[in-house]
């Protein structure tokens, strides 16, 4: 899709602000939700762009980002997508309506390839190494809100970065599922360990067994007969035998239970391993991301630096004056507030 000026007479620039872009994306998100079609959100970072900026200045970074955005447009030219390169946020964000996860993956792969193939033409004379994170709107967490969708794409991007480029991660159920499985596993292991301990204690405790019901019964039978030394010896032997039998059986039961526990743990572990390999990230990476979620660090702003009025804003002059008036008013509130606060309470 090529940029086309919207028909509104009041807006002179076809360019939209980031806030406006976000609301356009949001509208698409809600449309997809009500009309029930798949939609993907893609975030692209250029690996090493900060180093590049440090070495060659922000223009180099700027043109790398522009080149990246150009590639995305080329690769996805048959796709209607809504995208923007957020200069100060070091990433490209795009929403692809009517796009399946497979198609998104394919686009991701193409983009990585295109970036790698650009080695000679890129601004800095370097290949563009991309990290790509994507999410789709088919999960509960990504379907219920635009924020959820963006956040998941951001997490996927987080997983994809730091590998020297070429990495595409789609945030899917697998990730959430692994998270849940790992919690299950931790809980299961803990309760198994406790149970195992109890079993082991019990099995090893012959004294306990001696007090078992069977022993009781045997002794009661012997109590009904006339006790001779022979019979007493016999009683001791019968009790010993019974205890030994009980012990063996208990051990077998415990062993069977242990095997069952081990099997369950093994199953969980294998399922985690399988899911992990499916999504192509390591356990370590996944854990890092999940821990990130636990503390809820908040959602990052798309801005890295203080913004201010855009120089090319068609109403820049009027807006500048307004900003200054608002500031003056607030300065006055603040001055007035300072002595007043004391009298308020």
């Amino acid at each position: 899709m090529t940029p086309e000026p919207n028909g509104s007479a009041t807006r002179q620039a076809p360019r939209l602000s980031i806030t406006q872009m976000l609301s356009v994306m949001r509208v698409e998100f809600h449309r997809a939700r009500t009309q029930r079609y798949p939609l993907c959100c893609l975030m692209v970072a250029v690996e090493g762009v900060d180093d590049l900026a440090a070495r060659e200045g922000w223009q180099a970074k700027s043109s790398a980002m522009a080149a990246a955005y150009g590639l995305l447009k080329r690769v996805a030219r048959e796709h209607g997508f809504i995208g923007m390169a957020i200069q100060s946020g070091d990433r490209i964000m795009a929403v692809f309506p009517n796009t399946s996860t497979e198609r998104m993956g394919e686009l991701g792969r193409l983009l990585c390839e295109a970036g790698a193939a650009q080695s000679t033409t890129s601004a800095a004379g370097l290949a563009l190494r991309f990290a790509l994170g994507a999410s789709h709107n088919l999960l509960a967490e990504t379907n219920s809100s635009f924020e959820g969708l963006v956040e998941s794409a951001g997490r996927a991007l987080h997983l994809a970065t730091g590998h020297g480029g070429g990495r595409y991660v789609m945030w899917r159920e697998a990730e959430s599922e692994i998270d849940a499985l790992r919690n299950d596993l931790a809980a299961a292991t803990k309760s198994f360990r406790e149970e195992q301990q109890t079993l082991a204690d019990e099995a090893g405790d012959a004294g306990g067994l001696q007090r078992a019901e069977l022993v009781d019964k045997i002794q009661r039978i012997f109590a009904t007969v006339v006790r001779t030394p022979d019979i007493e010896a016999l009683e001791v032997r019968v009790v010993e035998l019974a205890v030994a039998e009980l012990y063996e059986e208990r051990k077998k039961a415990v062993a069977a239970q242990m095997r069952e526990h081990a099997r369950q743990v093994d199953m969980l572990e294998r399922r985690i391993a399988k899911l992990t390999s499916v999504i192509g990230v390591t356990e370590e990476e996944l854990r890092r991301v999940m821990e990130l979620k636990m503390v809820d660090p908040g959602v990052a702003s798309i801005f890295k630096t203080v913004q201010g009025l855009r120089a090319d804003d068609p109403q820049a002059q009027a807006k500048k004056a307004m900003m200054s008036t608002i500031f003056e008013q607030n300065l006055a509130f603040q001055k007035k507030a300072a002595p007043e606060t004391a009298s308020v309470g």
Binding site: P3, W58, G83, Q307
Partner: peptide, 30 residues
């Protein structure tokens, strides 16, 4: 308006002047 519109560094110029005065201790963004 659903065109793909690249956000270029128009704001960057304004930013660099604004940044001078900033006593920014936080570096995680704005």
């Amino acid at each position: 308006t659903t065109a793909d519109i690249g956000q270029k560094g128009g704001a960057e110029a304004a930013t660099s002047t604004a940044d001078k005065g900033a006593t920014t201790k936080k570096d995680g963004g704005v």
